[in-house]
Simulated scan of single mutants.
Amino acid sequence: MPFIEESDLLELHKDIDKAQIINERLLDQIKFKNKELKRSKVQRNVLAGVTGLFLVVVLSVTSFTAGLSSSTGIDKQENLLVSIDSLDAIKSRIDNLKQQNEELSDVKEFYLAKRFLEKEKIYSVQVKSFVDNNITLASEALANTVFVKTNPFYSYSLGNFGTLQEAQSFRAQLVDLGFQDAFVASYKEGKRIQIEDPY
Rank of each mutant, 00 (worst) to 15 (best):
Ile4Asp: 11
Glu6Val: 15
Glu6Ile: 14
Asp8Leu: 06
Leu9Thr: 05
Leu9Ala: 14
Glu11Gln: 10
Ile16Arg: 09
Lys18Leu: 01
Ala19Thr: 07
Ile21Cys: 05
Ile21Trp: 01
Asn23Leu: 04
Arg25Leu: 06
Leu26Ala: 04
Leu27Thr: 09
Asp28Val: 03
Gln29Gly: 08
Lys33Phe: 15
Leu37Arg: 11
Leu37Gln: 09
Arg39Tyr: 02
Gln43Leu: 09
Gln43Arg: 14
Gln43Thr: 10
Arg44Glu: 03
Phe54Arg: 02
Val58His: 03
Val58Tyr: 00
Val61Ser: 15
Leu68Arg: 10
Leu68Met: 14
Ser70Met: 15
Ser71Tyr: 13
Thr72Ala: 05
Gly73Ala: 06
Ile74Asn: 07
Asp75His: 13
Asp75Leu: 08
Lys76His: 10
Gln77Gly: 06
Asn79Ile: 12
Leu80Asp: 09
Val82Pro: 00
Asp85Tyr: 05
Asp88Ile: 14
Asp95Met: 08
Asn96Glu: 14
Glu102Thr: 08
Glu103Phe: 14
Ser105Leu: 07
Lys108Glu: 03
Glu109Thr: 11
Arg115Gln: 15
Arg115Asn: 15
Arg115Glu: 15
Leu117Ala: 12
Lys121Phe: 04
Ile122Leu: 09
Lys128Ala: 04
Ser129Ile: 13
Val131Trp: 03
Asn133Met: 00
Ile135Ala: 12
Ala138Cys: 06
Leu142Ala: 13
Val146Ile: 15
Val146Asp: 03
Val148Phe: 03
Thr150Val: 08
Thr150Asn: 03
Pro152Tyr: 11
Phe153Asp: 01
Ser155Phe: 12
Gly162His: 14
Gln168Gly: 00
Gln168Tyr: 03
Gln168Asn: 08
Phe179Leu: 02
Phe183Gln: 08
Val184Phe: 03
Lys188Val: 10
Lys188Gly: 04
Arg192Ala: 00
Glu196Thr: 02
Asp197Ser: 09
Pro198Glu: 12
Tyr199Cys: 01
